[in-house]
Amino acid sequence: MKPVTVLEAIDQALAEEMAHDPRVILMGEGVATKRKALLAEFGADRVRNTPLAEGIIAGTAVGAAATGLRPVIDLLFAPFLCYAMDELVNSAGKLRYLSGGQFAFPLVAIAMTGAGWGVGAQHNHNIEAWFVHTPGLKVVMPSSVADFKSLLKAAIRDDNPVLFFVDIGLAHTEGELPAQEAAVRLGEAVVRRIGEDATLISYAKTVGVCERAAAVLAEEGVSAEVLDLRTLKPLDEAAVLASVRRTGRAVVVHEASRNCGVGAEIAAMLTEQTWATLKGPVLRVGGPDAPAPASYPLEQAYVPQVEDVVSSVRRLTRSAAAA
């Protein structure tokens, strides 16, 4: 099968879901301009350009979702979600609960983020943890071409609001789509590499960093498992716990800043639930508490590197050996 890029996989998912369900519509800044094939296939009624106004795009999606449509909105870059926070957090996340279950909000908000294009902190800010910390929202951040397609389809079919983050650095990477598409549900992590001595827990672009780190570690005789979370909420706690109970060592790796990030939550969970089997502290490799710079070397310094992950695992395995 011909390889496709992540962006093409996203387009395929959108096209298939729009064909599957006439209630699915796509709105955003330039969606009709840039996604000509979708516009041609589904028409201007269902593929809608909008004003450059994220708040009203999100609000319109929330109102439409509660009353019979299944909107997908493209908000372009994650920092732009700040303009849409009331609609996503206070409305989509809370009005089902506050109304005693009278409404559901089947909508997907897509946004890109992450280092790789040197766009700077107002286009690159990994804010996924904000939404994990918010009730009523699901958060997806895939790493593979196949997952981008199958998880976007699953997100569109989900009856809840889903934040779907696209790592900029992965946008043009190519991959094969399986001939027989696997039905992936939200909330299922996947083991990318089996290992026995340590678990590298990650999502999005840094899954690749972990896989390369695992290859380096293998040459040193350390067998590292790589777990791709894929969905940050609901979090596949069972998969995380099962892996770490087996390996006894965990390093959480993500590009978002460490403080109060997803890694902090996972480290706390592992401490609470796997203390007896842990052979060392749960370590985190993540970005600094700084805005993401545009300058290439600074941007690269921001992002977790293979060496950072390798040295974290070495710290854990050597302290165990010393003990």
Binding site: G55, I56, A58, G59, T60, A61, V62, G63, A64, A65, A66, T67, G68, L69, P71, D86, E87, N90, S91, L95, S99, F103
Partner: peptide, 19 residues
């Protein structure tokens, strides 16, 4: 979709009307 965030209802009304 009653919202107590002042202006919240204005952002949701467009979506309800679109449906």
């Amino acid at each position: 979709l009653t919202s107590t965030i002042v202006g919240g209802e204005l952002a949701l009304a467009t979506g309800v009307a679109l449906s």
